[in-house]
Structure formats: structure tokens, C-alpha cells
Amino acid sequence: MLEARLEQSSVLKKVVDAIKDLVQDCNFDCNDSGIQLQAMDNSHVALVAMHLKTEGFALYRCDRNIALGINLVSLQKVLRAAQNEDVMTLKAEDSPDALSLVFENSENDRISEYDLKLMDIDQEHLGIPETEYGATVKMPSAEFQRICRDLSLLSESVAIEATKEGIKFSCTGDIGKGAVTLRQNPNVEKPELGTTIELQEPVALTFSLKYLVNFCKASGLSNTVTISLSNEVPLLIEYEMEHGYVRFYLAPKIGD
């Protein structure tokens, strides 16, 4: 059986908020390393991979591998009943048809108990190879979100170029064009506010802004985001949490 307790409900609430517009139904795979999820969007253009590691739980017990088939819209409805500061306990049997969620406030005088019906989901899993990326950019997640939103008002696509000059996001649309260039600028006092660029080779790729704007819904998970790029392969965007991560992969647009 599974029993997993989070000190703060906000962790799972933020993860679900971050991915629910990308995927609808997905398996939460529970095993002795924690709770993991991998799911593609319907068009097979984007993929989300999530891992909440056991270290992030106040209590974690999972005797055997359990797949919790969850509709994320339904899960979000139940999670609305949890206050951010509530302790959350997830429980499921070995072959569950429901997930039990218990929310307790810090004063220990309110216990909310919910059951969420589970589904059988036959999900395709992709093998994602270890990749040495040509360029890796670490920057404030809020700034990346702002750039994606601003450029998405002008165009459907963004060209991302990483050179030794910096990283340039540019787009061209019906009303005009726009570009934002970030130069390496490490912040010694507050590393989460700095921008660092590791460049192995120049990279130039084009991506759909609709997906990037969607990924930025994970900005609440981390002050920083890491963008990894190589020519002609999917980009990787990672939001690292204290004990886990949410990663997004996006296939590039080529030759248009």
C-alpha cells in the first residue's frame, strides 16, 4: 500500500496547477523512489516529467509499485479543499480504485477526508536519452515567463539563439517583431536572480510559444528555471524543487 505525507499541501497543488493544462489523464507512478509522472500532451509535441522524491515527504511508505490513474481536473477539485499550509496524507491500496486524501490544519483541529476515484490509464512512456546539451541557461523563472508572455502577443513561434554573446529570444508577427537578449550576469548575493549561460556550441532553434507559455505555469515551483538546448532536438525546461522536479520537453519546429 501507499502512504505518503506532505508537510505542506501547496507542493502538490502547485505541481497539479503547473501541468493540468498540458495533460488531462495520467498515471502517478508510486514506488520506493517517490511519486513520478510522465505524460505527453495530446498532440505528442510536449512532455511533462515530474518526480517528488521520498526525501520530500514527512512520511513515505510504498511496498510495491502502484500506478494511480488520475484525471487532473478531478484531482484539482479535491485539492481545492486543502489549504496551502495543511498537512496532506495520500493513501492507496495495492490495486486501488480510489485515492484517499486527508488534509489536516496546523492547529490539528480540522481533518478533511476525501476519496478520488481512479481510472485505468494505458499510458505510453518515452525513453528520454541522456543528452549533452549545446547550451544550458539558468535564469529567474519570472523573467522567462515574462519573455514568453510578451513575445506570445506578437507571434506563434519564437526563435531561440544561444551564442557567446548571450541568449536571444526573437519573434516576428503580423504587427511587428520583438527580441530579448539576455547576457550572462551571475548574481553573487542572490544566485536566483542571476543569469548563467553554459555554452558548448552555438544553438539556434524555433519553438511554439503556446507551449512555452503553458510550461511557465510551473514558475511558482521554483525561483529559477533551467533551459537546455541542442540543435535539432527537443528543448528541456526544468523547475527544480527542494526534493524533486518538474521537467518539460518540447519538440522544435523545423524547416518552416
Binding site: 505527453m40 505528442h44 509535441v45 512512456h125 518515452l126 525513453g127 528520454i128 527537443p234 519546429k253 518552416d256
Partner: peptide, 14 residues
């Protein structure tokens, strides 16, 4: 959309 690749052309199914 034109030129939009899918992940299936890069990553294999497990």
C-alpha cells in the same frame, strides 16, 4: 502547424 515536429521523432517508445 507547418514544421512542428513531434517528440516521437526524437524519443523512442518504451
Amino acid at each position: 502547424p507547418s514544421g512542428q515536429k513531434t517528440l516521437l521523432s526524437f524519443f523512442g517508445l518504451k
